[in-house]
C-alpha cells in the first residue's frame, strides 16, 4: 500500500464513521494537535468529529536526511472524536484493519503514555500504540486544554504515517517509502530534509528570532484584546515554531526555554478562554436540536 493510499484509506474510513474530512492547517505546527480543529474544537460543549493529515515540523529531529527514521518534517494523520465514543478502541483497531493489518497476526499493544503539552496548557491520559514494538499512534483522552477542563472529553488518535508505511511496505529506510507506484518519499523530501537541517541546526539567527518572538507575542495580545482568539491562536502557533527553531540552534538555555514555554502557555490560556466566550455568544451552534 502506497503512502498516499494509506492517507486515502484512513481518511475514508473515518469519514465513513461521521468525521468531517479536513485539510492540513497552513501554519507550521509541531504536531497535529496544534491544528485549530483539535486545539480549539476540543474546548466547550460542542460535539466534533474530524479527520485530516497534517505535515508537522520538529526542527531538532532533523538528521540532514542521513538517518533512516528521523525527519524534521513529517506527517501525522489526526482523528478527533468528541465526545469520545464507547467503541473508540475497537474503531481504531478496525481502522488498522482497513490498512490490511490483520489483528490476530500482529502484536498490538497499548502502552500507558500520558500526554502533556506545557505550552498549550493541555494534558491527557492515554497510550502509545505499538504495532510489533513500533510506535505507530498516540491515543489520548483530553482532560484539559488551554487550562480548561474538557467536557465532554475528546478522544484523539494520531497516526504516525511514515512508521505505518514502513511497516506495511516492509522498508527499513523511510526515504524508500513508496509515495505512489512511481515516486518515493525520498525523491520528494530528501532535499527538503538536507536544506532544512542546515537551516535549523546551523543558520538560524537567534537575534532575529528572539525579536520575532517578542513582536508576534505583542500581536497576539493585541488580537486577544480585540476579542479575536482565532488569529491570536495563529500568532501562538508561529511563536511555538520560533521557539522550536531557537531550540534546534541550541540558542537558549533550559531555563530560558522554560520561561518561553510559560509565555506561550499564558497565551494559550487566554486564547482558550476567549474562544469559549465567543462560541458561547454564538450559543454553541454545533449543539444541534
Amino acid at each position: 500500500m502506497t503512502f498516499q493510499e494509506i492517507i486515502f484509506k484512513l481518511k475514508s474510513f473515518w469519514a465513513s464513521k461521521g468525521c468531517v474530512s479536513l485539510e492540513p492547517y497552513d501554519f507550521p505546527v509541531g504536531a497535529a494537535t496544534f491544528h485549530p480543529s483539535t486545539f480549539l474544537r476540543a474546548l466547550g460543549p460542542e460535539p466534533w468529529k474530524a479527520v485530516y493529515a497534517q505535515p508537522c515540523r520538529r526542527p531538532t529531529d532533523g538528521r540532514y536526511g542521513e538517518n533512516p527514521n528521523r525527519l524534521q518534517h513529517y506527517y501525522q494523520l489526526q482523528v478527533i472524536l468528541k465526545p469520545s465514543p464507547d467503541d473508540i478502541q475497537d474503531l481504531y483497531i478496525e481502522s488498522l484493519e482497513s490498512l490490511g493489518v490483520v489483528r490476530k497476526k500482529n502484536d498490538i499493544k497499548f502502552i500507558d503514555d500520558n500526554w502533556e503539552s506545557p505550552s498549550l496548557g493541555a494534558a491527557g491520559v492515554g497510550w502509545e500504540v505499538q504495532l510489533n514494538g513500533m510506535e505507530i499512534s498516540q491515543f489520548t483522552y483530553f482532560q484539559q486544554v488551554g487550562g480548561i477542563e474538557c467536557k465532554p472529553v475528546a478522544g484523539e488518535l494520531t497516526y504516525g504515517l511514515e512508521r505505518i508505511a514502513m511497516h506495511l511496505q516492509s522498508v527499513d529506510n523511510l526515504y524508500d517509502i513508496k509515495w505512489n507506484d512511481d515516486i518515493t518519499y525520498g525523491e520528494i523530501y530528501l532535499q527538503n530534509e538536507e536544506e532544512n537541517s542546515k537551516y535549523n541546526f546551523e543558520l538560524v539567527e537567534p537575534k532575529i528570532l528572539i525579536k520575532l518572538f517578542e513582536d508576534v507575542e505583542k500581536e497576539c495580545n493585541k488580537l486577544l484584546s480585540k476579542d479575536l482568539p482565532i488569529p491570536a491562536y495563529d500568532m501562538l502557533l508561529q511563536n511555538s515554531h520560533t521557539l522550536n527553531l531557537l531550540d534546534s540552534k541550541q540558542a537558549i538555555s533550559s531555563t530560558e526555554r522554560q520561561a518561553y514555554i510559560l509565555r506561550l502557555r499564558k497565551l494559550s490560556f487566554l486564547v482558550a478562554k476567549k474562544y469559549l466566550e465567543n462560541r458561547n455568544k454564538l450559543n454553541f451552534p454545533l449543539i444541534k436540536k
Binding site: 538517518n67 533512516p68 527514521n69 528521523r70 497476526k105 500482529n106 502484536d107 504495532l131 510489533n132 514494538g133 513500533m134 514502513m166 511497516h167 516492509s170 527499513d172
Partner: peptide
C-alpha cells in the same frame, strides 16, 4: 511479529 520488533531496535 519478530521481524517487526527487530526493525524497531535498529533505528
Amino acid at each position: 511479529i519478530v521481524k517487526g520488533h527487530e526493525r524497531v531496535v535498529n533505528p
